[in-house]
């Protein structure tokens, strides 16, 4: 798994979004988002308009990485749940499989108990989706659908344009 790229196709993205929307609704959360362990934001739902989700994603991944290392020093495999309590907003961070992080931001309109319960259910569904996604990406690679790839034709000129 380590080192392989994360490829998300339209169908799977819809399924992921649906799960996040369910969680957002059922847990009565403010914001729900998914990040991969390298800090890339995969998807977010809820009141994200005044949130810097890119920075949040990167810092969450840093947080998980740091606590993961603390866990190892203590002889634990990993801490699978992190909880941060604020005056108004709270943060529930948990792992989905080996490489995905699920973050829920919530306030007093709900409870940590409800959030944990809903997160558990959604995590099972998300794990299945990511499993399918990995298989699909491997399959596509095996069948080498390279001719369909948008990246096959990239030229020096395309890259030059990025810096103009």
């Amino acid at each position: 798994m380590n080192g392989s790229n994360l490829v998300v196709y339209e169908d799977e993205f819809k399924k992921i979004d649906e799960e996040l929307n369910n969680l957002h609704r059922q847990a009565n959360a403010k914001v729900v988002f998914l990040v991969d362990k390298s800090g890339q934001l995969i998807s977010s739902v809820g009141a994200t308009h005044d949130l810097d989700t890119t920075s949040l994603a990167s810092l969450t991944a840093g947080n998980i990485a740091a606590t993961g290392s603390i866990a190892k020093i203590l002889g634990e495999q990993e801490f699978t749940i992190l909880f941060h309590e604020g005056e108004k907003d709270n943060l529930h961070i948990s792992l989905v499989g080996e490489r995905i992080i699920l973050v829920v931001i919530f306030d007093q309109r709900t409870s940590i108990g409800l959030v944990r319960l809903r997160v558990k259910k959604v995590t099972e569904n998300l794990e299945k989706i990511f499993e399918e996604m990995t298989q699909k990406a491997e399959q596509e690679k095996l069948e080498s659908k390279l001719e369909d790839s948008p990246f096959a034709e990239i030229s020096d000129e395309d890259i030059e344009k990025l810096f103009m």
């Binding site: 392989s4 994360l6 998300v8 339209e10 993205f13 390298s38 800090g39």
Partner: peptide
């Protein structure tokens, strides 16, 4: 590990 999102047509890389 790049993240390629075909749905939102985004390519994210880490340096």
């Amino acid at each position: 590990m790049s993240f390629i999102n075909y749905s939102s047509r985004e390519l994210n890389c880490k340096i």
